[in-house]
Amino acid sequence: MDEDIVAIGLSFDRWEELFELILGSFSYMNGIIDPPSSALSMTPQSLREKARQEIGFVAREDDELIGCIFCRPEPPSCLYIGKLAVAPSHQNRGIGTRLMGRADDLARSIGYRQLRLETRIELTDNHRRFRSMGFELFSEGRHRGFDRTTFIEMRKRVSWD
C-alpha cells in the first residue's frame, strides 16, 4: 500500500481536508492531555506553512486523505517526526506504521541515523505503539509553565538493511 503514500508537493491544495484529518485524529486527546494539543492552534494556513518548512507525506485511499506525517531534519543526525495522524475510521490498519516507514526511508536517504518524536505522558497507548515500531524512551520533558513531566521523547535507530 506504499503507493498510496505520497509526498506533499508544491501542487498540494487540500489544506482544509488535511487540517480536518489532523483535528479528527487528535480529538480523542481533548480533555486527556494538559496542555492541550498544538493541533488546536493550527489553521489550514499554518499547516501549509509547516509543509513549506518540513517534509510531509499523506496516505490516500481512493483519493481520500486518511493519514499524514511531517518530518523535520535536525542536523546532524535526527529526523523529528510530528503530526503523525490517521483518520479514526482507518486506524489499526497499519497506515501509521507505513507512514513511519516512509520517514525511516527519508532519514536513510539523507544520512540520518535516528528518528525522534515526542508524545504526551498521558498517552500510554501511543507509547506502546511507538515501542512496537522500535522507538525507545530517550528523555522526559515539560512544557513551559508546568512543574511536572508533560511529554516523553522517544528515539529509534534508522534501519539500514
Rank of each mutant, 00 (worst) to 15 (best):
D147E: 12
N126Y: 08
R157C: 13
L21P: 03
I152L: 15
R129T: 14
T150M: 04
P35E: 04
R52F: 02
A103K: 01
I95A: 06
D34H: 05
S41C: 12
Q45H: 14
T124K: 13
D125T: 10
Q114T: 10
H143C: 07
I66T: 04
G96H: 01
D125Q: 09
V58C: 01
S25C: 01
V86H: 03
E122C: 08
I33E: 07
L84W: 02
F70G: 01
G134T: 00
S139C: 09
R72I: 15
Q53I: 04
S132K: 12
R144P: 15
R60D: 06
R102G: 01
K50E: 15
L137H: 14
I8L: 09
D34R: 05
C71I: 04
M154Y: 08
I95K: 00
L79W: 07
L65A: 02
L18V: 01
H143A: 03
P88A: 03
M1L: 06
R52V: 00
F146C: 10
V6R: 04
F130P: 05
S77K: 02
P35G: 05
F70K: 06
I55F: 07
A59W: 00
R113D: 03
R72F: 12
S132A: 15
C68P: 03
A87D: 09
F19S: 13
G145S: 09
K83W: 13
